[in-house]
């Protein structure tokens, strides 16, 4: 009897620990989780700073001629962007005039917060990024995250100095979308990410008359409906559409941008507090507080 109890003692101990854990109040668990997260947060952040420093040192190896060429290319880009900024300012004032004339409620405007990526965590279970800005920069949970190629994902958790972004390729990510050139909304969901291959997602509720072939993919963009994402942001390329089992709609496959796997910098679109309305961009130096009207 005593021997049998001795054999069961490890499992009895585990059972007591598990029972104690289940009856622990939720706030105590939340406190423990936050404590563990903030305790470990400096590790990926420090590593990402080291990577940035390494990058800067590698840039110092470039010759003067290469730097001159890069400067020349940047000047051309700046010229193009300044022209775009002027166009944007004119369009913003036109929107304001129309809102005023038609007595429309103002569209939400976002504050753009650029953040460096501290760590990427792309398991088969989820795909997430840790970025180096959190509550200290006013990041809010649920904010859309974008990069030059389109949608990156959505802020899932906000911590003191970091935030966690759920990637567009994550199986739990969903957003209302449109196929470019068609006004009917459909549903996009992140998919199963195969190893050694670009990420994919899927679309549902595709109208029957839409057809796409792999040789001529069509752009999938955010619809701006029922969510936080502004309209018109690229999600990916629809590469194929098949009839669904119910016969009422079609389903499709979406290829996501391969650059998502190697992101080092993203932009969070933070919705300002109610009643606060940011000013539009007037000069390139204001890029970090540029408004984006959905």
């Amino acid at each position: 009897m005593l021997k049998r109890f001795s054999q069961a003692r490890p499992f009895a101990t585990l059972g007591i620990v598990a029972a104690a854990w289940f009856v622990l109040p939720v706030f105590a668990k939340a406190l423990l989780r936050a404590g563990f997260y903030e305790f470990t947060a400096p590790f990926p952040v420090a590593a990402s700073y080291a990577r940035d420093l390494q990058y800067i040192w590698s840039l110092r190896l470039h010759t003067n001629l290469q730097l001159i060429e890069a400067g020349r290319d940047l000047e051309r880009l700046n010229g193009f962007y300044e022209y775009s900024v002027q166009q944007n300012t004119a369009l913003q004032s036109e929107i304001s005039n129309l809102e005023e004339a038609l007595h429309l409620p103002p569209l939400p405007r976002y504050r753009m917060e650029t953040a460096r990526v501290a760590q990427r965590d792309f398991t088969g279970w989820w795909q997430r990024l840790v970025i180096r800005k959190g509550r200290n920069f006013g990041i809010t949970a649920g904010s859309p995250v974008i990069f030059t190629g389109g949608v990156v994902g959505r802020v899932a958790e906000v911590h003191a100095f970091t935030s966690v972004v759920e990637l567009v390729s994550s199986p739990d990510f969903r957003v209302a979308a449109l196929i470019d050139g068609d006004a009917r909304p459909l549903s996009f969901q992140g998919g199963i990410n195969r190893p050694f291959a670009p990420a994919r997602g899927s679309i549902e509720f595709v109208p029957l008359d839409i057809a796409v072939q792999a040789s001529a993919p069509r752009r999938l963009v955010t619809s701006g409906l029922g969510g936080v994402f502004p309209a018109g942001l690229t999600i990916g390329q629809v590469t194929g559409i098949d009839p669904s089992t119910d016969g009422l709609f079609k389903t499709g496959t979406v290829s996501l941008d391969p650059r998502l796997a190697g992101l080092t910098e993203v932009t969070v679109l933070v919705l300002p507090d109610e009643g606060v309305r940011s000013q539009p961009l007037n000069s390139p130096s204001e890029l970090r507080s540029w408004d984006l009207t959905p």
Binding site: P44, A47, R120, D121, F122, P195
Partner: peptide
Amino acid sequence: LGRLNDALSVARVT
């Protein structure tokens, strides 16, 4: 492991 997985994210393996 965190740094290794960060580097391997390009290949979509963990």
